[in-house]
Design a protein around this nucleic acid. Sequence first.
DNA 1: CGCAACCTTGAGCGTAATCAACAAGCGTGG
DNA 2: CCACGCTTGTTGATTACGCTCAAGGTTGCG
Lengths: 245, 245
Amino acid sequence: MPSCMVHIPPSVHRSDVDCACCDLEERAFCAGLAQTSSALRAIRYDTRMDSQATIFREGDAASNIFTLVSGAVKLSKLMVDGRRQIVGFLFPGDFFGFGHNELYGYTAETLSPTTLCRFPLVSLDTVVAGSRELERRLLRRMIAELSFAQEQMLLLGRMNAREKVSHFLLMLSRRATHRGEPASPVAVPMSRLDIADYLGLTIETVSRTLTGLKKEGLIAINGNSRVDLLDYRALGLVAGGDTLS
Amino acid sequence: MPSCMVHIPPSVHRSDVDCACCDLEERAFCAGLAQTSSALRAIRYDTRMDSQATIFREGDAASNIFTLVSGAVKLSKLMVDGRRQIVGFLFPGDFFGFGHNELYGYTAETLSPTTLCRFPLVSLDTVVAGSRELERRLLRRMIAELSFAQEQMLLLGRMNAREKVSHFLLMLSRRATHRGEPASPVAVPMSRLDIADYLGLTIETVSRTLTGLKKEGLIAINGNSRVDLLDYRALGLVAGGDTLS
DNA sequence: CGCAACCTTGAGCGTAATCAACAAGCGTGG
DNA sequence: CCACGCTTGTTGATTACGCTCAAGGTTGCG
């Protein structure tokens, strides 16, 4: 890894680092294109952020889209009285920031120190117009996102606490393997409160359910941010026979 | 309305009716394009279906996408034990049928006698490749759909029964006005069970909540499939201050 | 090492689910 | 045209799952 290790100053800066250094490989929506599309590379900004930082807020003018390069991000929506729903957790390779009616529909915050690839939307529009392949990929990603959102609706509307938590752990594991990490000691970068707001539960119920699964020997808990999945088969059963038709 | 009133045989047939007869105007994703894109027009099939008919099932090979021309459609996901989550209700102008991994992620059924515009996906791919504008519109629609799905997550995860039902009625009303129908005596083409499976409630709770709202004078109920919204302001308050930031 | 944030555990409560009976539409056929 | 039966919706009584309120433990960071 030669020029990839070059010093990257903190915070935001115009990137002159070649996309070849991006270790996301085929997982990013822009994978492979940045090499071919100098236009895309030209509008790219690297952004480094601390843990627990706000990337943008619900209702802000949607002016950028982002690819998550390293770290983790949560997307959330708020009600006036403070009730919150987390609508997504993002990991390296995921993208976010498409707004409806020019506004972001959710708040985006980092869960850990994070590296982002930022694309100004106006510039991106013109770039997309120049790349059939890029637009095609964006469409495909949106379809996958929507499909995932519908799965989540099933979880929120029809699963009980045990099913929700099991499903959540299996999802973390599946996504970890998808980006080349081990399936079992799975990293849980989000707090219990975040998990609760993602699953439509309270923090107490999440905690109780996790201890329940632990006592049954399905999982082991290491220091609150790491969970071993000891019995996938049983967890899958608890998760309640995924949407079978 | 001249040639628009031509006889259309029942069931599926290759359409030779001009899209100009489509009264969806700018609401359909293909609006305006069918006139200009003879390719799109060429692959279009009209489909008529009875009420309570299955258009496709969750897990079927995704081979078509559809635009709803008239009638209403529900999209649902099933769990092995029969629990069901409705992930969307569709009205004229809406489109559906994009599958993830070549498979439909939900079952689509009609709620009333329905007219569909069906586009074979393989053909559409090539058509889309020929129309920048078409692809752009599809992407925009997907973003709007995703945004709506995230709203629904907030509803399913964080709202109580009263808020869910009020929100639901207001949504029906808003969408009715969007397609040029009156806001208040709003058509409710779906059963109580469908509403329950959409809101993550039981049929009894939906019923009780509706009678509750009726007794408070916020709505009036006409024959189970028509509701008058008597007090938008109050309903909006009950709906619990929409996602405010 | 000390403190503060986060997590766990417990007791009691409340909302919506469940179980059950009844009413109201609605389509069919006598 | 009305009676019948079936489907759909409403209402009631009771239960249970997860929420709330409260206290006690951990963890990790300065």
